[in-house]
Amino acid sequence: MLKQELETTFDNITIRMEKKNQLELSITKDGIMSVLSFLKNKGYDHLHVISCVDWIDDKQLELVYILSAYMKQDVPGETEQLNILLKTRIGRDDPKYITSIALFPAAEPYEREIHEMFGVDFLGHPRLTPLLLERDYDIPPFRKDFDTKQYVDDVFGSVPSVEGEDKN
């Protein structure tokens, strides 16, 4: 039912249902806001998380919005809780995307985290200030080209040992 409505309403949408209660939607990046508001009006008004995947070979970042109805009674005709994974891909170099706070206020911390860990700039976000990290990183640390071992050797390895000075 929902599948048919999505297919008739949106172009360029691919719908897969690999598990029983998990619907996977992929769409080009111009359709995300309209799909989100469509699903919100359908009753899927609970945004679990916004996640991000770095596809370094395709030179793309994938944003994943995970939605469900807060209670299954909210959606008429639904017999068990349906999780909706809404995926889109954006370019990896200087990534920018629009914020979804206007639809889901709960998106704010997730977008801050993705900004911090993957470097995605969410336009219209009220405060993209540091959330979890303490230091500044040249490359955002969750990207695949961030060499953690090299970084550890450079930063933590360069701190001199105090006890060594003591023995001299």
Partner: peptide, 13 residues
């Protein structure tokens, strides 16, 4: 966490 970007390696420093 020997190669973690955010974890201290030697506390005694």
């Amino acid at each position: 966490y020997y190669d973690s970007y955010n974890t201290i390696k030697h506390l005694e420093k």
